[in-house]
Computed example of a mutant assay.
Amino acid sequence: MQKEQKSFQDRVTSINQRAEVAASKATPVRTDSIWVRLAYPGSFIGAFFLGAFAVFLTRYFQSQLVNVPGSGQPGAQDIVGIGLASMAGLFVSMLFKGKQKEFASACTLGVLLTTFTYHNAVWAYPESFEQVYGEDWVEFIQSITKPSSIYFFGNTIELS
């Protein structure tokens, strides 16, 4: 009986020792700053604006190279914008290898939303866009679109 009690006490002691070792190896409580914790959702916003900026930049290059698209090509800028969505998505997935699907989706959403609603900014700020793109380009955009609408491959869908 004495031997059984001793072995039971030994087992309890070894269990307690293993519990102490496991507790000492446990990861400490996170004490990151608020900025470190906001970096992940902030990177989604950054990827979205990267896609929007890519559309602005592409439209600028188009206006410098082609000026005003021909009368038979009003949806050409939309097609270029969607092509840019895939390229921007690939670029973002290369930058953020760990979370490529999420960030590429945010970037693509930014590209698509900006592609189909870009003309609303032209209607809101025509003087600013005339300085960047030129008066002919602004007149062309205003002739094929309406304010407060979505321009989807040559079709205007009014929102108001």
Rank of each mutant, 00 (worst) to 15 (best):
Y118L: 02
Y151S: 14
L65N: 06
M87V: 15
E139Y: 02
F152T: 11
G81T: 00
Q100W: 14
F96R: 11
R18Q: 14
F44G: 14
K146M: 10
L57F: 02
E102W: 14
A124S: 10
S143Y: 10
Q73K: 13
E127N: 11
E20M: 09
L109Y: 06
S24C: 02
A52H: 00
S86L: 11
F49D: 06
T27L: 01
A106R: 09
W137G: 02
F152V: 15
V36A: 10
S7A: 13
E127F: 06
Q142Y: 09
K3L: 15
Q73P: 02
E4K: 13
T31W: 04
T108I: 10
G72C: 12
D10Q: 13
K25T: 03
F56I: 00
M94V: 08
T58G: 03
I79E: 01
S93V: 12
V138Y: 04
E127T: 10
A54C: 02
P126N: 05
K101G: 05
T114K: 00
S86H: 06
K146T: 08
Q62L: 12
E158L: 07
Q77Y: 10
R11P: 01
P74V: 12
V36Q: 08
A76T: 05
A54W: 03
V80G: 00
T13E: 03
P28T: 08
K6Y: 15
T108S: 08
G70L: 14
K6L: 15
S160F: 12
V29K: 10
E127H: 04
S149R: 01
T114L: 00
S149P: 05
M94Q: 08
F96G: 04
Q142E: 14
Q77S: 11
L113E: 03
D32F: 09
F48E: 05
Q77H: 07
G70K: 15
V111P: 01
N120W: 09
V55E: 03
A22M: 11
L84Q: 03
E139W: 03
A104K: 12
K97H: 12
S63R: 05
K146Q: 14
G134N: 09
S86N: 01
F140R: 14
F56N: 01
K3Q: 15
F53A: 07
F8M: 11
V68I: 04
S43M: 11
P147M: 10
M94N: 06
A26Q: 05
D32W: 10
A19P: 00
P126E: 07
F8K: 14
D136H: 07
S33P: 08
G83W: 04
L38F: 03
S24D: 13
A52N: 00
G42Q: 05
F56V: 00
A121L: 10
L159F: 02
G154R: 11
D136V: 07
F48H: 08
V92M: 15
K25W: 01
Q9H: 11
T58K: 01
F48Q: 08
S24I: 08
L65Q: 07
M87W: 13
